Simulated scan of single mutants.
Amino acid sequence: MTIWILFAVMTGAAVLAVLLPLSRRVSAEEASSAVGERLFYEDQLKEIERDRARGLISDAEMRAAKAEAARRLIRATADEPKPTDTVDEPALRRRRAASAIALSSVPLLALAVYGAYGSPHLPAQPIAARLQQTIDPATIGVAEAVARIEAHLADNPEDGRGWDVLGPVYMRQGRFEDAANAYLNALRLLGEEPTRLANLGEALVNADAGVVKERARLAFARAVELDANQPKALFYLARAAEQEGNLAQAKAQYEDIVRRSPPGAAWLPIVNERIAALGGVPIAPTIDPQAGAAIAALPEEDRLAAIGGMVERLEARLMENGGTAEEWVRLLRSYSVLGQRERGAQALAQARAALAEDAAGLASLNAAATELGLEN
Rank of each mutant, 00 (worst) to 15 (best):
W4H: 09
I5C: 08
F7L: 15
A8K: 02
T11Y: 02
T11H: 04
G12M: 11
A13G: 13
V15G: 06
L16H: 09
L16D: 09
L19T: 15
L20V: 14
R24W: 11
R25V: 13
E30N: 11
E30A: 14
S33W: 10
S33H: 13
A34D: 01
V35H: 13
E37H: 11
E42C: 01
E47W: 07
I48L: 13
R52M: 05
I57V: 11
I57R: 06
A64W: 00
R71L: 09
R71V: 04
I74S: 12
T77C: 01
T77A: 14
A78S: 04
E80Q: 15
K82Q: 08
K82L: 12
V87Y: 02
P90Y: 04
A97D: 04
S99N: 13
A100F: 07
A102R: 02
L103T: 10
L103H: 03
S105W: 07
A110W: 07
L111R: 05
V113P: 12
A124G: 13
P126R: 06
L131R: 11
A138S: 12
T139G: 11
G141D: 12
G141E: 07
H152R: 13
L153A: 04
A154Y: 03
A154P: 03
D155K: 15
G160M: 00
G162Y: 01
V165Q: 10
G167Y: 00
Y170R: 05
Y170F: 12
Q173P: 06
R175F: 05
A180T: 01
N185T: 00
E193H: 14
P194G: 03
L197D: 02
L197T: 00
E202F: 10
L204T: 01
L204H: 01
V205W: 00
A207T: 04
A207Q: 02
A221D: 15
L226E: 07
A228V: 13
Q230F: 00
K232L: 14
L237W: 02
A238V: 06
A241Q: 14
E244P: 06
L247F: 12
A252Y: 02
Q253L: 12
Q253R: 12
Y254V: 04
E255I: 08
D256Q: 15
R259M: 13
R260P: 12
S261P: 08
P263Y: 07
W267R: 14
L268F: 08
I275Q: 01
L278R: 03
G280V: 06
I287F: 10
A293T: 15
A294S: 12
I295H: 08
E300N: 05
I307S: 00
G308S: 14
G309T: 11
M310G: 08
E312P: 07
L314A: 10
L314N: 09
R317L: 07
N321I: 04
T324I: 10
A325E: 10
E327H: 03
W328K: 09
L331R: 05
R333M: 03
R333T: 07
S334N: 05
S334G: 14
S336F: 10
L338P: 03
Q340E: 15
Q340R: 15
R341Q: 13
R341D: 10
A345R: 15
A345V: 15
Q346A: 12
A351Y: 05
L355A: 04
A356T: 08
D358A: 09
D358W: 12
A359Y: 00
G361H: 08
L362G: 02
L365F: 08
N366K: 07
N366E: 15
T370Y: 02
L372Y: 02
L372V: 06
G373A: 05
L374Y: 05
N376C: 00
